[in-house]
């Protein structure tokens, strides 16, 4: 565990907590893509099956359980408890365009052709693009609430910090996982446009509004 990895994990944790607080306090999931949240729940379920086969550390187990519980909880809040506030008219990204290619890719490009390894690989590929329905929703409505922007910023920072972690691990531990690195870079790149808007607008106290 290095400082970049820890900061990345904490940023990821913060993103999820920000999202849950937003939904809970405002009793609304307006502006949030339920489709992205479903994809994240699939990502965690397929990645953390090793909870049942491997014990790594109490930290590792606690974080996995939290990510699983919170992602499933978010889906529950959006599709059941606060269903009436879910903005489904603007949440129209076709997730089969993400699920099918990432599933196929994980069958072809993996470290080992085994069920656990393929599901892990699928979760890595799917995570890299899971935010697209949310970014599509923001671009469709042309704006995002500040709290949604903070959520997206924390979520994007997480994979960016993981890249620094991978550089550190490559130099100091000789460790690298090419699948995680390439997918993580793709994931981070998808946020670049948003990061630019966040820094130039939201941090200056303005609402995130896309140019018409």
């Amino acid at each position: 565990m290095n400082i970049f990895r820890l900061a990345g994990d904490l940023s990821h944790l913060a993103a999820i907590i920000i999202l849950l607080i937003k939904i809970w306090k405002t009793r609304s999931c307006a502006g949030i893509s339920g489709r992205s949240q479903v994809l994240f729940a699939i990502v965690f379920i397929t990645r953390y099956l090793d909870l049942f086969t491997n014990f790594i550390s109490a930290y590792n187990t606690a974080m996995k359980v939290f990510f699983l519980g919170s992602s499933i909880g978010t889906v529950y809040l959006m599709y059941l408890k606060f269903k009436a506030t879910y903005d489904h008219n603007h949440d129209t990204f076709r997730i089969e365009f993400l699920l099918l290619p990432t599933a196929l890719l994980s069958l072809v490009l993996n470290h080992e052709f085994s069920v656990m390894e393929i599901l892990w690989t699928f979760s890595i590929y799917l995570e890299s693009v899971a935010i697209l329905p949310q970014l599509f929703m923001v671009s469709k409505t042309g704006e995002a609430e500040s709290i949604t922007s903070h959520y997206l910023f924390a979520l994007g920072s997480y994979r960016g910090l993981y890249i620094l972690n991978w550089i550190y691990r490559y130099y100091f531990e000789g460790f690298y996982d090419i699948i995680a690195i390439v997918a993580g870079c793709v994931q981070t790149i998808l946020y670049c446009d948003f990061f630019y808007l966040y820094i130039t607008k939201v941090l200056k106290g303005k609402k995130l509004q896309l140019p018409a």
Partner: peptide, 10 residues
Amino acid sequence: SLSDEPKDEL
């Protein structure tokens, strides 16, 4: 190989 090592990253 990598797949034999426990995955410590989240």
